[in-house]
Design a protein around this nucleic acid. Structure first.
Lengths: 211, 211
DNA sequence: GTTGACATTGAACGCGCGTTCAACGTATGT
DNA sequence: ACATACGTTGAACGCGCGTTCAATGTCAAC
């Protein structure tokens, strides 16, 4: 990429670069053919290397899977980080609903990645290392709702007595994940926008309904 | 089982009986080892027959999978059918929440089956026939919420203008499915009972909070 | 008793998978 | 120029899978 690199002490194609190339190829294969089509040979072909080399850089297919999920969680499934600041003047419930709405819309735009994520989710059901990674990702996802949830509970402590921000954030995450499972399998019948509107109508006080 | 059967015109072990035996064995294997461990040989061993016989009764592994899912949906994932009648005197929202609560509790008691269902869900992502079956099951599941959802909208039409009972039922289903995905992967951290209480606090008017 | 249709077996085939390994570059340090 | 260490290949191994099939068993009909 750069015309004349200084003669690094590293070898021909240093480990880090090759690993990243292979991981990118693995993601391309997985996004296209899902985890069921992710074979060592397929990834090697996609990356333009031999299968042997792949197992020289990743000790096993298991290692490749774990590293791929790690890479995905770091590179593609970016949690919404921008909407953590409360818009001034809006009631906390409206703020939380806005976050849910934006996250849901964002999720539905990357169907490919979400499907792949569910592949890993199922894999994590029996694979402890994968499970740990998925859990951490879900926790991080849930945490994005915590500030708004905290504000809601602080505003009406009597209403939410015995409950905390984690519970409320978990409910938001559950709603979004449930929408994802429904819309992925049945995009024609499940309308996430209408579901979001329904949730707003359910939760918001009638006089607080906004445009 | 019965001492002296009348000499039926059927053969030694008639097709329907063998098929059912094999399907039960397949379910036992799948419940234990999930879809990843469901091989023709494993099912045949579990059923006490040969692999060849299994493919004599089911034309292929694909056929076995489809028939197994069909069997599961008919035998094990029983949708709650009892709570369709509105308890007299309770507001519709409370009624709907009660249904959600019962369904969620019921779901969490059969973790094994739900995990297996998600295996099929992922499979359905690429397998049209499986997808059709899963869709139908989810639709039936959603329909269980329709009567109560209908009552809610009928009670406050202005609040839900532009929305219908299907939308509201879909939201309920999404919540439950999201709870399932969270609790299966992380049963120690996600507490479905607290999530349910949170949902009630969110939706119910403060004066309507019941025990 | 003989026939014929169905149920059942067990061995085999072919394939794709993850993995191993000896051999061969290729660039670096001396 | 030589030695060394690393990157890379391609062929091969072994395994488990779905699937096939000729052979055998079993029962009802005639």
């Amino acid at each position: 990429m750069f015309p004349a690199l200084p003669p690094m002490p590293g070898r021909k194609a240093p480990e880090a670069i090759r690993r990243d190339e292979i991981l990118r190829a693995a993601y391309r294969v997985a996004a296209r053919d899902r985890l069921g089509g992710l074979t060592i040979r397929a990834v090697a072909t996609e990356a333009g290397v031999s299968a042997g080399l792949l197992l020289f850089h990743f000790e096993s297919k298991d290692g490749l899977l774990v590293d791929l999920l790690d890479w995905m969680l770091a590179h593609t499934i970016v949690a919404g980080e921008l909407h953590r600041r409360p818009p001034p003047g809006t009631p906390p419930v409206v703020w939380l609903l806005a976050i849910v709405e934006r996250d849901l819309a964002h999720l539905l735009k990357q169907r490919e990645r979400v499907e792949l994520f569910y592949d890993f989710w199922v894999l994590g059901t029996r694979h402890p290392v994968i499970r740990r990674l998925i859990r951490r990702a879900l926790h991080r996802y849930r945490d994005a709702f915590r500030p708004a949830a905290q504000a809601i509970i602080a505003a009406e402590p009597l209403r939410y007595v015995g409950l905390n921000a984690d519970d409320l954030a978990g409910v938001c995450a559950a709603f979004i994940e449930g929408c994802a499972t429904q819309t992925i399998l049945d995009p024609t019948r499940f309308d996430a926008v209408r579901a979001m509107a329904t949730l707003q109508a359910l939760v918001l006080q009638p006089e607080a309904v906004v445009s």
